[in-house]
Amino acid sequence: MINKKVDTISEALNGVRNDMTFMFGGFGLSGIPENAIAQLVKLNVKGLTCISNNAGVDDFGLGLLLQQKQIKKMISSYVGENDEFERQMLSGELDVELIPQGTLAERCRAAQAGFPAIFTPAGYGTEVAEGKEVREFDGKMYVLEHAFKADFAFIKAWKGDAAGNLIFKGTARNFNPNMCGAAKVTVVEVEELVPVGSLDPNQIHIPGIFVQRIFQGTNYEKRIEQRTVRPKPEV
């Protein structure tokens, strides 16, 4: 067993610098690497390029990095839940690249899987395709999209072991598995770090080979953005 376990958050994020490019797992606030984000706030590294489907909300998730003006550029598919984000974007302080959600996922997966680029039909004929190579396959038009290049991927998993094997829970899975191994260093925080051998190899979502560092996360808030419920029937 190759040991990926680190004991402290500072060890986990060792090597992060100003002006780096980071990937963050998560959809909305579900499955975001809360511990890594908190540590990046503490380290106060600046000039960051962040690849993340969303930009958090004003006071949580990547919104915390935006508050401290640590982010230079966001690459996202949907950013509608953050007023500070909108303010920084409209004032020109923040550079924003909006790309289709499936393209975002596949540019991560391409980086993980060793493809330099992929062709997708998404965005053909729209401003997303401006300046990009397009090609026809079987009568349909596709846009060339390049694999991401990132320094760190910050991942949140449900369970993991010291070998770096991961299992995700529910829709907190989202982009997390696609970003593992898609950056130079993949750092995973887990809700439960379990003993090696206790995870069933048949049930592993991401094998440890894609992971460089794993640590036991703490104090998960797991905020809900839209709490929608129905009343419990009377018994």
Binding site: Y78, E86, L98, Q101, T120, P121, A122
Partner: peptide, 12 residues
């Protein structure tokens, strides 16, 4: 300016 989310993938 909220973004396209998955809409461009869906319609394409």
């Amino acid at each position: 300016v909220k973004g396209m989310g998955g809409a461009m993938d869906l319609v394409a």
